[in-house]
Computed example of a mutant assay.
Amino acid sequence: MEFLLAVVTGLLYAAGLYMMLRRSLVKLIIGLILIGNGANILIFLLGRITKGLPPIIPEESKVFIEAYADPVPQALILTAIVISFGLQSFAIVLIKRAFKVVRTDDLDQMNSIDPYS
Rank of each mutant, 00 (worst) to 15 (best):
G16M: 06
A98Y: 07
K51Q: 10
I65H: 05
V82K: 02
R97T: 11
L17N: 10
P73A: 00
I30P: 10
A6D: 06
L17W: 05
Q109E: 13
N40P: 04
A15Y: 11
A80F: 10
V93F: 11
N40C: 11
S61E: 13
A15C: 12
L76K: 05
M110P: 04
I56G: 01
L28S: 06
K27I: 10
V7I: 07
K51W: 08
T79G: 14
F64V: 04
G36L: 03
R103L: 08
Q74M: 15
S84D: 15
V82E: 08
L32F: 10
V8P: 02
L17H: 03
S84F: 14
R97W: 14
V102W: 05
P73Y: 00
V102Q: 06
R103H: 11
R97A: 15
I95D: 09
F99W: 12
V93A: 15
L78S: 04
P54F: 01
R97K: 13
L76E: 09
L78W: 02
M110I: 12
S112G: 04
M19E: 09
A15Q: 12
A39W: 07
G16Y: 02
Y13M: 14
L12V: 10
G52I: 06
M1P: 09
L5D: 08
I77G: 01
A69G: 01
L25V: 08
A39S: 10
F90Q: 14
F64P: 02
D114V: 07
V102K: 10
T79A: 15
P115Q: 02
G36T: 10
L21P: 05
D105A: 12
P71A: 01
I77R: 01
I41V: 08
E2H: 01
M110D: 07
D105G: 13
N37F: 07
L42C: 04
L21V: 10
S117T: 15
N40S: 10
L17D: 06
L45H: 01
V8K: 01
M1A: 12
D70M: 00
K51P: 02
I29E: 03
L5N: 05
I57H: 07
I43C: 01
G31N: 03
I35T: 10
M19Y: 10
F85P: 05
F64R: 04
F99V: 14
